[in-house]
Design a protein around this nucleic acid. Structure first.
Lengths: 337, 337
DNA sequence: TGTTAGCACTCTATGCTTGACATTGCTAAA
DNA sequence: TTTAGCAATGTCAAGCATAGAGTGCTAACA
């Protein structure tokens, strides 16, 4: 689509702008090319007409448009993809088998946000796809007990319930036995449905009818698994980015994060790497940002997601291979199982 | 220390400045008092000399100094303390016995931060003071098991361990039985010590010597209880405060929060309410802020803390009774046990 | 036909000046 | 002790001139 020199101009503009956050002029480009500023001006004018570049005002240098970034990522960076991706900061982390997986993920996210001055997010893996391993009731004192639900992947949720005086421990034990019988090996996502279905059966209904509060408590405990877990870091890094000198942008961004709307900005179903630039994001508060997401494989075809949120003026050349690298290594953590 | 009119001037200046974030001049004060601006100017001049007021520049109105705020809180607000503290926004929350305690705390913090446009923090209660109720090992698959530790207050921690082929399940069960025998009813804070001591006993050492990795995993699981839990909300509220229009202040603030340094800014050992104004905070990043903290009683003399962080120009008159009110009601949540 | 030098033009950023305004501190009178 | 009056001091916004960076266009050149 673009000829070689046009690509070079676009590439240089993207990379210079990413570095300095200032519009790039023809004179400074000419130092990296062996043609005169006037020639470059002509190319830039063409690129602007094609929609790859923009001006901030009539006599300013050029900055990349979102289309420009996209071309840069998809066409220009494509050729560099097989650079020997090695990120030594991460090696010691991924090689250390002592650290718990969840801590590895957290630390990787920390390093990622530091390396990029962006906000990094790790999402999931979600317990929603695991199966009930065991259900337990642990009496804490006369009037209080703890409900425990454990899944086959080792997730645990608990909920306290108060026990009224008319309940016998032995009766409760029966309820628990029954629940175990019904639910063991059921995917968390189907627990609620199954439980309600089984209660329709006459004899179970009989047993459970005084015990609805307990069953409800269990359902609540199960529902906790559905709450996605996430880990987020580097919000304050963003303040070093000149585009966030505008307080109102910052406010929008932090608001989105605080309101647990992270799930709306992260692309969790992409194959490979997803890059959403500016207006490509559906959330309005993210339309000045780029969100880069990649999945890593966990147990049984399930997956988690790591994401990076920053200004559209992002170091794509560094960020994309880095995220690919991290996702690959996080997947490896789960391979042993 | 101050005469009546001086107190009135100080009070009016604090409340006006809190409301508008603008230095307060003698003319606007005169509308609330029946003396002329000139008289007020003389009083203000005296109050400045005494250190209760400050100017932002030679011909500006006055703003309260930290000493001024302190006098305001300790002497002027003291007399208002017994106002009928009733905060209807919170009533439905505290009266609803259906909601789990932890969720009540979270929601209270949310409301608190909204009502004040500050950042609200709930710290603890810490599981560190509870006792071991039960220790469990749950096999997940041939090579993987889950360690569970449950305390008498219903806290649960888990840790996955991999099982090497030379371990028999029955042998493991013995280890668990032994651990239960040793540890049940031990305060979490003493588990590590006790375990190491017991291992010195010859016959136990015998049993455990192949199992050190397991014991270590348990110790790690216990240590998770010691990690303080906190809940924080309303960071983006702070952006509505004019004092945080300065990006570098904001950066300092967010950095402190991100680096888990919350524990250094919150006063967890105060009797009643603690108010740290500006330089009274030891953390430098908080020296433009006020931190208000109050403890609430939980189980067995243990406590949690709620805190509010905002600019020194804080609505003390509203905030202090509000926090007292919330702390009181959170304590009530635990009274039933 | 592609490239380049030269030049007018446009826009930003900075510094300076000015006037309007708010507020103080001081002085002298009530 | 209180107050009116007034000069002095500072902020803030608007206006203006200047310097500088960069473009677009034109005409010349290879």
């Amino acid at each position: 689509m673009l000829n070689e020199r046009q690509e070079l101009v676009l590439k240089l503009i993207v990379e210079e702008y990413v570095r300095t956050a200032e519009p790039v002029g023809s004179r400074s480009l000419s130092k990296h090319m062996d043609v005169s500023p006037a020639t470059i001006r002509n190319e830039m004018s063409d690129l602007e007409e094609l929609g790859f570049l923009e001006k901030t005002h009539t006599s300013s240098g050029r900055i990349p448009s979102e289309k420009g970034y996209r071309y840069y990522i998809e066409t220009i960076l494509k050729n560099l993809e097989n650079e020997g991706d090695s990120f030594s900061e991460f090696d010691s982390l991924f090689e250390n088998r002592e650290i718990e997986r969840e801590d590895v993920i957290k630390e990787a996210i920390n390093l990622l946000s530091q390396a990029t001055n962006c906000t990094a997010i790790a999402l999931g893996p979600n317990a929603y796809n695991s199966r009930v391993k065991k259900v337990q009731l642990i009496p804490l004192k006369a009037t209080l007990a703890l409900i425990l639900v454990i899944t086959n992947l080792g997730y645990v949720e608990s909920k306290q319930i108060s026990i009224s005086e008319d309940m016998e421990i032995s009766e409760l034990a029966k309820v628990i036995d029954l629940l175990n019988e019904i639910l063991v090996d059921t995917p968390i996502s189907q627990v609620s449905e199954k439980l309600h279905y089984e209660i329709q059966h006459q004899h179970i209904k009989e047993l459970l009818k005084y015990r609805e509060t307990i069953v409800d408590s269990f359902i609540e405990a199960f529902s906790k698994f559905a709450q996605s877990r996430y880990y987020l870091t580097g919000q304050s890094n963003m303040l070093y980015q000149p585009e966030f000198n505008d307080i109102s942008k910052l406010r929008e961004f932090l608001n989105t994060i605080e309101n647990n709307e992270i799930f709306k900005i992260v692309e969790t179903n992409a194959d490979g790497i997803s890059v959403k630039i500016g207006k490509e994001n559906t959330m309005t508060s993210m339309q000045d940002c780029t969100v880069v997401s990649a999945n890593y494989e966990t147990n049984e075809g399930d997956h988690g997601t790591i994401s990076l949120v920053g200004p559209t003026r992002m170091e794509y050349r560094k960020v994309i291979p880095l995220i690919r690298y991290i996702a690959k290594h996080l997947s490896k953590l789960y391979e042993d199982d």
